[in-house]
Design a protein around this nucleic acid. Structure first.
Length: 487
DNA sequence: CATGTCACG
DNA sequence: ACGTACGTGACATGA
């Protein structure tokens, strides 16, 4: 699975059946073939040996044959080989340990939130029914469309891919300027998301034996090299809204321990500075400047001290845009400003940071020529549509080409950090520190109270040492107390 | 199962 | 002329 993922993350899914078909032209015996399907499906222990043996033996056989096919492809390139041997393979044990450890949640606190959210949702529903003049299901986009755009005849701002009038939040936000109902819907949507996905569900996922929640990390899913997390997804626990932050507070430490979260500061922008070698950007990080303020100072041609909060906000959007393969259109929509103004900011930026522009152009060219881009460590992301005739598809591939080296290098770096930190954890007294979670640029730990200060410092140092960049790489412990510290 | 929506980095 | 920020996973609805 990992050999296939490192060889080409996007060419196929990486489960055995898909790989056997793609690389060996072999159709595996499916589990349904021997167990049946639906309600009458047997479990493996109920299957006759005559049927079970060939099925099981095929797995072993195909695994070996896939390895014989894929390993030479990976080993043919020193950098791919290193991504596999030095990152993905040693990471397996780290992820396994994290999954087995799990994390404690305060189910009682979440139950209280659920109840409060439920009460507020009922209030909102009642008000919404009055405004609409009838009862309807606020959770149904279809029924909401009918109320907003047919019954109340509000203007259609945007359509869904299928052509129906969209009720997405940005549309409701726009309508909320002139009508009362959309505002209620926005609040209802937000709260019902929190209730259904988190406060109701997380307590149901507590393991009876361990009394903790155990996620699964997937190592061969994303195009860029990031991990993903499922059942439950612990990489999208709310934080942006006040209500959301309360959910994060329900993630607590065992008695005698503290939760400590350490995250990389501006890791993708630092990688952009390193990869582009832009003098101005390298200098901003070397000087330890607030990078968004420094960007604002250049884009708006004012001294650093005269940067306003609005300038900084816009510069921050520009910086995010750069990481995403920005278009003037996208930046304009994000900032809700005219397109020519967005274009002006971009022009200014590239005038002041010409190395970044050159890097972006080089990346597009190289991607078009090779059909893939690579991270600092040589992980590849293939872009089959980079030379598509269809302009929209080609542009989308170009944006992915810009983004992948930064997102992917960050993923490589934190994976290296996880391996180093895990090694260090094993050298500490048993159970004095445990890795609990990874959230893309953040590692969350459970640390014995008496070790918190010393261990936190060690962890941040190990994370910072995970890669040598031409700018400082900084990891810091979360001062915002986002993952609550109980007991 | 597709769709629309929205939670995160 | 077109359609646009990158990467994910989970939920409710409704066919």
């Amino acid at each position: 699975m990992l050999e296939s993922y490192v060889f080409n993350s996007v060419g196929t899914r990486h489960d055995m059946d898909s790989l056997a078909l793609k690389y060996l032209g072999h159709k595996n015996i499916s589990f349904e073939d021997i167990a049946g399907k639906g309600k009458k499906q047997l479990t493996f222990n109920q299957i006759e040996l005559e049927q079970a043996a060939p099925y099981a033996a095929e797995d072993a056989d195909i695994t070996l044959r896939l390895h014989q096919h894929l390993w030479p492809k990976v080993a043919a390139d020193d950098k791919l080989k290193s991504v596999f041997c030095d990152i993905e393979l040693p990471l397996v044990e780290v992820l396994s340990d994290i999954e087995r450890t799990g994390v404690v949640i305060d189910s009682q606190m979440l139950a209280q939130h659920s109840q409060r959210l439920g009460e507020r949702l009922q209030e909102l529903e009642k008000e919404a029914y009055e405004m609409a003049g009838e009862e309807f299901n606020l959770g149904s986009p279809k029924q909401l469309q009918a109320i907003l755009f047919e019954k109340l005849e509000l203007p259609v701002i945007k359509k869904t891919p299928k052509g129906a009038p969209s009720t997405a939040e940005e549309v409701l936000q726009e309508l909320a300027h002139d009508y009362p109902l959309p505002k209620l819907i926005i609040e209802h949507r937000g709260l019902s998301k929190l209730k259904s996905t988190y406060t109701d569900k997380l307590p149901l996922m507590v393991n009876e034996k361990t009394k903790r929640v155990h996620t699964s990390y997937h190592q061969a899913v994303t195009a860029t090299g990031r991990l993903s997390s499922t059942d439950p997804n612990l990489q999208n626990i709310p934080i942006r809204s006040e209500e959301g932050r309360r959910i994060r507070e329900a993630f607590i430490a065992s008695p005698g321990y503290k939760i400590v979260a350490a995250d990389y500061s501006q890791i993708e922008l630092r990688i952009m500075a390193h990869l582009s070698q832009d003098k101005g950007l390298l200098n901003a990080f070397a000087e330890g400047l607030d990078v968004h303020s420094a960007t604002a100072s250049e884009v708006f041609s004012v001294p650093l001290a005269d940067v306003t909060s609005d300038m900084r906000r816009k510069a921050k959007a520009v910086n995010f845009g750069l990481i995403y393969g920005m278009s003037a259109f996208g930046l304009a929509r994000q900032l809700d400003i005219p397109r020519h103004e967005a274009q002006h900011y971009m022009d200014k930026y590239f005038e002041r940071f010409p190395g970044v522009l050159e890097y972006m152009e080089r990346t597009r060219e190289s991607a078009a020529e090779k059909g893939y881009v690579e991270t600092l460590f040589g992980r590849r992301l293939h872009l089959p549509e980079i030379n598509a005739r269809n302009g929209a598809r080609r542009k989308a591939a170009e944006r992915a080409a810009i983004n992948a080296p930064m997102q992917g290098t960050a993923a490589d770096i934190i994976k290296k950090a996880m391996i180093a930190v895990h090694q260090w954890v094993k050298e500490q007294p048993k159970d004095s520190v445990k890795i609990l979670m990874q959230v893309h640029d953040e590692l969350v730990f459970e640390i014995k109270e008496q070790n918190v200060a010393a261990y936190t410092e060690q962890i941040c140092a190990l994370m910072a040492a995970a890669a040598e960049l031409d700018v400082p790489l900084i990891a810091e412990a979360d001062s915002g107390d986002n993952w609550q510290q109980a007991h």
